[in-house]
């Protein structure tokens, strides 16, 4: 088990190196660089910069260098916790900008995942046990519609309701305004938790519906298997048969699907955060991409991939623990 984890961790580091390269290349691909977009911005506010100034800026950020040298320059700072500077944000170190938001993104994504699974699994079980009954039809119909509503529309809907019906004057945020800029403490954490259900609904609704449907299907498959009858033949209560024997097995494919599910959650987190103004990586990433701020954008997309890698690793570990048929190779 331990060697399995170590092997996976080593593989993950290898994967991260490749991912950092790909991230950097993708972020580098747009024609021009931050200085071009900065120059365009200056022209737009009619105070164009001289060619010499722009060249000096390029020099300063090393933008004139070949891509591989820029990449090495960027990566060499990683061990020190230096992810470059955000050119579009008055040269603030990327790490300072990204770290608090990374925590928020991680908190939001993982708690959405947990809540989605925590609701979808019991709903799926209930639907399967009441197969073709009214509850099953209700759940399945609602799930089908929920599956077709994209997260950003749900976010818009939440915002619309809070503005139109409850007269909200400012949008969202993930904690009360008074905690802005404060380091994380208990009161701020509590306030964050209170603000989470809305974003979680927007991000997780589709996944909740999809996972419920899959759980229902898995349950129906498992309930028709022979060992369920063995369990009943022992004289166990139906509830024990369903939960301890059927659901315990039906949940395994759900765990292995976390790897498919997590990217959707992260994508949803980006767009929902933009709409609801949440202090997560999403809005920062959008700004960085629009401004061609390559170190910032590159770092964030790399962190997204890291969340995925960690999520997949955790899912694999949980699955290995949950399904004895899986060997650690």
């Amino acid at each position: 088990m331990l060697s399995f984890v170590i092997r996976r961790l080593l593989l993950m580091i290898l994967m991260m190196i490749v991912i950092s390269m790909v991230s950097f290349v993708i972020i580098q691909l747009p024609p021009g660089d931050w200085v071009t977009s900065y120059a365009a911005h200056l022209r737009a506010i009619s105070s164009p910069a001289s060619e010499a100034t722009l060249e000096a800026l390029r020099e300063r950020y090393g933008l004139g260098e070949p891509v591989w040298r820029q990449y090495l320059f960027w990566v060499s700072g990683f061990p020190r916790g230096d992810f470059g500077i955000a050119m579009s944000m008055q040269d603030t170190p990327v790490a300072d900008l990204v770290l608090p938001r990374f925590g928020m993104s991680l908190l939001l994504s993982l708690s959405t995942l947990v809540v989605v699974l925590g609701l979808a699994i019991p709903f799926g079980i209930i639907a399967a046990v009441n197969r073709n009954g009214p509850i099953d039809y209700l759940f399945s119909t609602v799930a089908f519609f929920a599956l077709s509503i994209p997260s950003f529309i749900v976010a818009l809907g939440i915002l619309f309701i809070s503005v139109f019906y409850f007269g909200a004057v400012s949008i969202g945020g993930l904690y009360d305004a008074q905690y802005m800029g404060e380091p994380m403490n208990w009161a701020k954490f509590k306030s964050t938790l209170e603000h989470m259900p809305g974003p979680m609904l927007a991000i997780g609704l589709g996944g909740l519906a999809g996972t419920m449907r899959i759980m229902r299907g898995n349950m129906l498959d498992v309930l028709s298997q022979q060992f369920i009858e063995t369990a009943r033949a022992k004289g166990l209560r139906e509830r024990v048969v369903v939960v301890k024997h059927a659901a315990r097995l039906a949940v395994n494919p759900i765990i292995s699907r976390v790897g498919i599910h997590l990217p959707e959650i992260i994508g949803g987190e980006v767009i929902v955060s933009v709409i609801l103004g949440l202090p997560t990586l999403g809005p920062l990433f959008l700004r960085a991409v629009l401004a061609q701020d390559m170190y910032l954008a590159g770092t964030i997309i790399m962190l997204f991939a890291l969340i995925l890698l960690i999520g997949n690793l955790l899912a694999d570990l949980v699955l290995a623990w949950s399904d004895p048929r899986i060997t650690y190779n």
């Binding site: 790909v22 991230s23 992260i266 990433f285």
Partner: peptide, 13 residues
């Protein structure tokens, strides 16, 4: 290994 939407955003840029 990248989440789709952020990758799409980067590519669209």
């Amino acid at each position: 290994s990248f989440p789709q939407l952020p990758l799409w955003m980067a590519m669209a840029a």
